[in-house]
Amino acid sequence: MDYQKIRKRFIPMSETMFFILFSLREENHGYGIMQDVEKITRGRIKLGAGTVYQSLSKLESDGLIQPTQEIERKKQYRITKIGEKILSEEIERIRELFQITEDFR
C-alpha cells in the first residue's frame, strides 16, 4: 500500500494502536504485548484479547508489523521500517501537541 494511504489510516493514532506499535519495537506476542503495555502505562491500560488480535491483524495487513517466528504456538511480531516511520511521525505529532499546550500554561 502507498505510504500516504497508510499515513492517513494511522495518523492520528488511537492509544491502543500507539502502545501496541510502541511495544513491538522489540519482538513480542499477543499476550506479551498486553503485559508490556500494562507495565509501561503503570497499569492504566490493560488490553483485551479481542482488541489485541484485531489491532495486530490491522497492523500486519498494512505492513506496520510483521510476524517473525512462532514460539510455543505464540506468533511473534516486530515493527517494520514503515511501522517505525509511522510511529516516529505520531510521536512527533504528540510532542507538538504537548509543546503547544505547554506554551499556553
Binding site: H29, G30, M34, A49, G50, Y53, L56
Partner: peptide
C-alpha cells in the same frame, strides 16, 4: 461471556484468546 465473529479465523486467533485465559 464474549461473542465474537470471524469469517476466517486463523489458528493464532484461538491461541491469542487462550493465552489471555479465555
Amino acid at each position: 461471556y464474549i461473542f465474537d465473529i470471524h469469517t476466517s479465523a486463523k489458528r493464532d486467533y484461538l491461541e491469542t484468546y487462550r493465552q489471555f485465559g479465555w
